[in-house]
Design a protein around this nucleic acid. Structure first.
Lengths: 194, 194
DNA sequence: TAACATTACAAACATGCAGCATGTTTGAAT
DNA sequence: ATTCAAACATGCTGCATGTTTGTAATGTTA
């Protein structure tokens, strides 16, 4: 075995530690209030390393958001594994929403993905990222429901976007009102039935 | 009559010109990319004046957002004056949404109210501001529809929030897809009928 | 109306950050 | 062992924010 760190390992390790440190700080204090000196101090590297790996602060944030989206999608997917009783497509949509809301209980995650990301990266890039993760499965779920004839025949992508927007807002709701939001969301989705 | 400008007038005039200049720049380039030297240069005053009238850059932005929300609400209200055929409460909701989308055709307005405001001011303050303007009328519209028994009995405020989130996302949709979004929105609202 | 007080700004200052340019170390290839 | 490139580290520059200090205009009181 090779005790020496290879270049690739070294590179990957530095990148990982940077993204991890950045994630913590961005989650705690938001993008604007987090400085790059702060990040590199937490990561135990210098700003030179940061700007060697990322074009700028925004690119680092994009990497964090990308990863967070991936983790989020995985979390929701795993949670969905539980109920293996093959529910109808509408019920599946509702369950997916529940999983999303549960995974979104993390304040920092909400801040980064819903509040900061659109302002910092722009809607276009956020859409791109989301299209690779959560939104993709939502579009599939909606499409399945439509093809099964379970809900009205509507363009899947806009519908998925609108549902996604509603889930986002519900996730941002005050903790003590979240159950009301859940109820309303269910009603809205059920209203799509034929 | 008094040719001299009173303090109040002077104060109000400076404040107005600052907010106006800020609005233009925030709308064009976004909050982060707009500097205070830029703003005061456009306004024809110095940064001293800005920091005399506003606690910080964020407070100035809050003033701009507040005003923009007021103008937006007025615009929608005036547009709604047109069709005086007393539509049902559900149709009224749909028409309100149409009015919102029409008023949101302005790119700068979208950027400030939907993208930047939540990140810069935080959800809490945005909700406060919105509660004084657009959201208020939406809650009333929803409440009216519920009391009239036209739609399902659901908590009005969460429902209004979710609808508002939907409208926001629709407003951000690519221009060539907006009609599809309109269709889906209509379907979602109609699905609320009993 | 004269002296004083307050408001509304202007100008200069202090601090901190982002991005880049240049230097140094580490690793790999020959 | 030498050479070269990648992976960092260090230092510098310009700029933005917020604060402090100074000044002129306005308002108030004796």
């Amino acid at each position: 075995m090779d005790v020496r760190r290879r270049q690739q390992d070294r590179r990957a390790a530095t990148r990982r530690i940077l993204v991890a440190a950045a994630r913590t700080l961005f989650a705690q204090k938001g993008y604007a209030a987090t400085s790059t000196p702060e990040i590199v101090k937490a990561a135990g590297v210098t700003r030179g390393a940061l700007y060697h790996h990322f074009a700028d602060k925004q690119a680092l944030f994009a990497a964090v958001v990308e990863e967070e989206h991936a983790v989020l999608a995985l979390t929701i997917h795993q949670a969905a594994e539980g109920g293996e009783d093959e529910p109808g497509p509408v019920k599946a949509l509702i369950r997916g929403g529940e999983g999303f809301l549960a995974a979104m209980q993390d304040e920092g995650r909400r801040r980064m993905l819903i509040v900061d990301a659109p302002a910092v990266l722009g809607r276009a890039m956020v859409d791109e990222i989301d299209a690779r993760h959560g939104l993709r499965t939502l579009v599939e779920g909606v499409g399945a429901a439509i093809e099964a004839g379970a809900i009205k025949d509507l363009p899947p992508l806009p519908l998925a976007h609108l549902l996604s927007a509603m889930f986002d807002r519900a996730a941002l709701a005050p903790a003590d009102e979240i159950n009301e939001y859940r109820k309303v969301m269910k009603a809205l989705i059920r209203g799509l039935k034929k």
